[in-house]
Amino acid sequence: MAPPSVLVDAARLGAYVAAIFRAVGCDEAEASRISTHLLGANLAGHDSHGVARVPRYVEWCEAGYVLKGQTAEVVTDGGCFALVDGKFGFGQTVAPQAVELGIARARQHGIAVVGLRNAGHIGRVGDYAETAIRANLISVHFVNVAGSVLVAPFGATDRRFSTAPFSVGVPLPGRPLVLDFATSLVAEGKVLVASNGGKPLPANALVEPDGRLSGDPHTLYGEYGAVGPRDVTKGQGAIRAFGEHKGSGLAFMCEMLAGALTGGGTSGPVTARTRIANGMLSFYISPSHFGTEAEFHATGRAYVDWVLSANPVPGETVIAPGDKEAATRADRLANGVPLQPDTWAGIIATAQRLGVAQPD
């Protein structure tokens, strides 16, 4: 049986994480952005993209893989479309800059397409869909990870894809919808959480080189200690795509759109010069410019209500995209953020090494 979670007050946890990134050299604004984004993932129940990432982010920053204080550069500007280079800055810095550009252009033109390349790990993609929703915009996001080969395509055991997230945000009055998932059966961060004593993986989440299915994080990481870094290059297996050929096909398209089209590169083949970075191709649509905003809101809300009125399977609840995250956020803000003991120990060890005092 897994040890009980450590409950940490959300505000104190956010302040602690921000202090860690200030200690590694980020300015106040950047440290706060990174902390807010990672904590936000935990609050939404996406622990794989939350504060469990802190030790890895710090390692990447110290190694020079991710750079502090970067400003994304617009390298192609066509008005309603643009290509942005993140210059390997922290994803929580350069991705919001790209999103803000897309929102501004969609407000101006009614639609915008923005490509982002060479960004540090951008974290939970649904956060950017929620940002667009607050601007009353529909958004669609295709994401890849250049240089990160973790997922086997349908029918294979070799790694070929990144976890390739996909997200859609739909603004409806009082009922926004946020669809957000990795095209892998589980995100790599969920394997990380499981390796730290967190929620176990499904027994078919991973695949061994001989084709056997596995739920053991060692399949991806090889041997590792109870506390410390995980190295995906040490494992011999791969994560599986979700939904068999359908998820595999969507992952393929994420690599094409977010990786090849943006010029940031696809997941592989990996060479000695390959640098891990996120790419994202985002579409923003303004319902008010489209000319059907009133109909969209009325029809959309009516459809959501009709879907949710479906007779549930015994023991289940019919939910819309984003409902689970909203409920988890309310609970964790009220009762604290649960962290696995090994995850918490890893964060504390990183903080102590940087001279950051642990909160009560």
Rank of each mutant, 00 (worst) to 15 (best):
R105L: 10
L83A: 12
V54A: 04
F154Q: 00
N118L: 07
R134L: 10
Q92V: 02
L101P: 01
Q108F: 03
V140A: 13
N144T: 14
F81I: 13
E130Y: 04
I122S: 11
V143W: 01
F90P: 06
R56K: 10
T76G: 01
A104R: 15
A82N: 02
V143F: 03
N118R: 15
V74A: 03
I133R: 11
P171K: 08
S167F: 12
V94H: 08
V114L: 08
D77Y: 02
Q108T: 14
V149R: 13
I103R: 12
A63D: 13
V113C: 14
A146L: 01
V99H: 07
S148R: 08
E130M: 15
D85Q: 11
T93N: 09
V149D: 03
F81Q: 14
G79I: 08
G110I: 14
L177A: 07
L172R: 00
I138R: 02
K87D: 12
F161Y: 15
V145A: 15
G86W: 12
F161A: 01
R124C: 04
H141F: 14
Y128Q: 06
G69F: 05
A72M: 07
A82H: 08
R105Q: 12
A135S: 15
G110F: 14
D77Q: 03
C61S: 13
G147H: 11
H109L: 03
L150F: 04
F88N: 15
I111A: 13
F88Q: 12
V75C: 04
V145W: 04
R134E: 15
N144F: 04
D158Q: 12
F88L: 15
A129L: 06
G120P: 02
Y57W: 01
G169C: 11
G78T: 02
K87E: 13
S139R: 01
Q92F: 13
P55H: 06
G126A: 08
I111N: 02
N118S: 10
R160G: 00
F166D: 02
L67S: 03
R124M: 13
E59G: 07
A72E: 04
D85L: 11
